[in-house]
Amino acid sequence: MKCALVTGGSRGIGRAICVQLAQETDYHILINYQGNQQAAEETLALVKAQGKTAEILKFNVADKVAVDAVLGAWQTENPDAVVEVLVNNAGITRDGLFMWMEPNDWNQVMDTSVNGFYNVTSFFMQKMLRNRFGRIVNMVSVSGVKGTPGQVNYSAAKAAIIGATKALAQEVAKRKITVNAVAPGFIKSDMTAELDETELIKNIPANRFGEAQEVADLVCFLVSKKASYITGEVININGGIYS
């Protein structure tokens, strides 16, 4: 059984990626979530509506013990399952000016994005190397590429993942494993729901927010055979706001 795991797969961009992977590939979809079980079950139903198989896995990517326990138990129950595609999508924001930023707001964002990437990717890395195939897509952000005021923590976390993407890609390329990052700009989702869209689109050349579906289409391209010579790249999808 060949599988694709999407962390933070229950809502927004993560959900769109799960559904699109179900449409375009034959992978068994592993939908990770941390807190919102109802949203995860809705995503599961949407994937199954595509005629594909899927399951939900509950763990906090920032908690290595939990990651190892849940994924280890899943692997034991499914000894023939091979995770070929990993989309590191889980992320949180704790926005605020740096001068007033509490340690917890810094640590939680770094833990989820940076340590979350390490915890989940390291679980599968040796397996992918032995299998001589893999597709890793790390969801970053325009904030990690250009920096966004009010998001020093988030910008730092996503910039760290960009560096990790480029380095890891070089380590594993010989084994037909690609590692790329996708950097969305303003995409309609829960994370951007409270932003003033009318004001912000004045700065976006495309004159609109992006759709989660558009990001999902890009991720699906990167995990396909068509993208096998693309690795170590950061692909911006932001309507021209920062190109």
Results as ranks from 00 to 15, higher is better:
S189Q: 05
M191A: 03
A16R: 00
L5M: 13
P205Q: 10
E77A: 15
F98W: 15
T112V: 15
T121M: 09
I136T: 00
L30K: 08
V47M: 04
A45S: 10
A159W: 03
P149W: 00
K225S: 12
D196L: 03
N238M: 11
I31F: 04
V19H: 04
A4N: 06
T178Q: 11
F209P: 00
M125T: 06
N236L: 14
L218D: 14
I31T: 06
L30H: 08
A16Y: 01
K2L: 07
V179L: 10
Q126R: 12
L97K: 13
E199R: 14
V6W: 02
T231S: 15
N107Y: 09
S122N: 06
E41R: 08
E214R: 10
W100T: 06
V120G: 02
A216W: 01
V172G: 06
M128H: 00
V85F: 05
D68I: 12
S122G: 07
Y118V: 15
D63H: 08
A160E: 02
V120K: 00
W100E: 05
V61K: 03
G12V: 12
L21F: 06
V172E: 01
A81Y: 12
V140T: 12
Q213F: 07
V6L: 06
F123I: 10
N236T: 11
V120T: 06
A216P: 07
G134I: 04
F117D: 02
A160C: 04
S224T: 11
L97P: 00
G185P: 13
D196R: 05
P79H: 15
T112W: 03
G14S: 10
A66Q: 11
N104T: 08
F221T: 09
G14W: 02
T43D: 09
L97C: 10
M99D: 00
P149D: 05
N153C: 02
S143Y: 03
S141H: 03
L195R: 01
R94E: 06
Q34L: 08
Y154D: 01
G12P: 13
G72T: 07
L5Q: 09
I187A: 08
L46A: 13
Q50C: 14
M139K: 08
N88V: 02
L200H: 14
D190G: 15
G150K: 05
T25I: 12
Y33D: 07
G134A: 05
L97S: 09
T231Q: 02
F124K: 05
T76G: 08
N207R: 15
E197S: 15
D63S: 03
N236H: 14
D105E: 11
G232P: 01
I92P: 02
N89R: 06
G210S: 11
L21H: 07
G51N: 07
K188A: 15
R94Q: 11
D80G: 00
G147Q: 03
K166W: 13
I13M: 09
H28L: 06
